[in-house]
Design a protein around this nucleic acid. Structure first.
Length: 187
DNA sequence: AGCGGGATTTTCT
DNA sequence: GAAAATCCCGCTT
């Protein structure tokens, strides 16, 4: 159960992150959340930021696994990924939804929402958890944002679908979510 | 419940 | 100059 499992650039690794936890230290409180929805992107994938090779934005995506890749989009939102694969792979798992476990008050203060609306989307969870440009390139073995590996979920608990919000490579079945989880962005 | 538009800025063509 | 790994609000049905 350690982060070396992230060194394989494969959709399976994005699925593997389901059920793992993120520990965010913010406003003096430890906020624990469980990852419940991910999508896989890599350099061979026309929908991926890494598709056209290294750029200033995608530099982190081409680095070692276990680091956070944060991007800004639609002039307004941040989304975060966990970098996967060996250096140079340009692969990552977009975190699309998480389930809050502790620190819900802290998340509500930042998000100005409650219930599933706290974290049931990639930009929503970044807003709730205070993830922005400042955490781009952050090493997830360290505070203030840590990844905690958990046992792999049984395949029967996971749903696999095509990805959300893209216009290229729309048929790749690279979105994964915990089937019965309320925080999944959409079913 | 579902559709359409606006917000707002980075990135690449 | 246009599109973008999104979200929210208001209007219609």
């Amino acid at each position: 159960m350690d982060m070396r499992e992230l060194n394989i650039a494969s959709p399976d690794t994005a699925r593997r992150l389901l059920g793992c936890e993120l520990v965010r230290l913010i406003d003096g409180e430890q906020v624990w959340v469980k990852i419940v929805e991910t999508e896989y992107y890599d350099q061979t994938d026309a929908a991926s930021h890494s598709y056209r090779g290294r750029t200033p934005r995608t530099e982190i995506m081409f680095g070692p696994a276990g680091y956070l890749y944060v991007y800004f989009t639609y002039g307004m939102h941040y989304c975060c990924n966990i970098v996967l694969g060996e250096e140079g792979a340009g692969a990552a798992a977009l975190i699309r939804a998480v389930e809050p476990l502790t620190g819900i008050d802290t998340l509500m203060r930042r998000r100005k929402r409650s219930g599933v609306e706290l974290t049931n989307g990639p930009a929503k969870l970044c807003s709730a958890m205070g993830i922005d440009r400042g955490l781009n390139g952050h090493n997830l073995t360290q505070a203030p944002l840590r990844l905690e590996m958990e046992p792999e979920l049984d395949a029967s608990a996971v749903t696999t679908t095509t990805r959300v919000g893209i216009s290229q490579a729309v048929d790749m079945p690279w979105r994964f979510y915990i089937s019965d989880n309320l925080y999944v962005s959409r079913k």
